[in-house]
Amino acid sequence: MTLEAIVAIIAGGLVSGSLYALMASGLSLVWGTVRMFNFAHGALVMVGAYSAWYVSNRGGIAKALQPIGKSIVANGEEAGALGGLLLPLGEWILSIKGGFGLALGVPFAILCCGLVGYIMYVLLVKPFVGKPGADLVVIITTIAGASFMQNGVQVIFGPRYKQLDRILKGPPLQILETAIGLQEVLIIVLTPLTLFLLHLFLKHSKLGLAIRAVAQNDDFAHLVGINVSQIYPLTFVVSSILAGLCGVMLGGLFFILPTMGAQELLFAFVVVVFGGLGSLPGTIVGAYVIGFIRESSAYIIDLYWAPVVLFATLIIVLIFRPRGLMGGEDS
């Protein structure tokens, strides 16, 4: 194997590992705390990508606002004092033809995903919490939610592909004669940073400590005065934001379409089962391991057989360790 191949596999493994880590950590967090599994997590990735695109791209909200801007400018001169006030607004709208850029797109995506996550919790999860068989019922309701979002986005945006702007523009980086795109480098750098922030949040903030307390034992958490009914939606919101960030990064690498996220969800499943549901360190280690297995098998065997290798790994892990490599005692 050549040196370039090794560098390419490492870079590719880090990129896919990062994306899986962002997704799977959200899944794992929700499972650990609420004891529910969110099948709509992939759809949240898609929502993140679309909302970032809508604000940042010229084809999104900027295009929708153009006629309004034009009519303000056209009518403004006749309408007197009020028109004079509105005129700069109209001109400003016309000046943002190219969209607001990712500087606004990413925060908007985070906001959107957080909101969608909260709504999802209220509609799809909350009514079933504490009832027998709730974890399985929630699988069904979240699958329905995923289908609703996928089809809803298709109604709003149409089935045509979209693409997010790359955050960093420029020629690819040359590492040991292997070209690595700047977007990939950004993903490799930003993901550990995001996960570190998540770690700080869970370890040192009051809300994060509350989430971990509920994850360990919700009855005792209740006893020490933690409002468990507020921690559940909070966990959903945090996990949705992580999915949204994953969507923003994916959107810069590949095309955006309503069914995006489904395949990543699949790999995230493999990751959480591999790493053990509910164990965050296990999930993150698992994500990078799975990322490397995928990239190296794609390189050595064939791109299309990579999933088969992964599933074989998964099934072997499940046969010998039915609760994952680092999974604790949960049922």
Binding site: F37, D135, L266, L277, P307, V308, F311, L314, L318, P322
Partner: peptide
Amino acid sequence: IPAIRLRGIYVALLTFACSQLVLLLLLSQ
């Protein structure tokens, strides 16, 4: 064969993964 050894949520994950695997294989050929 792998699914009967598992419980609850893990069965759902595994079977879902299997069906998507079939899809990936079909798309790959």
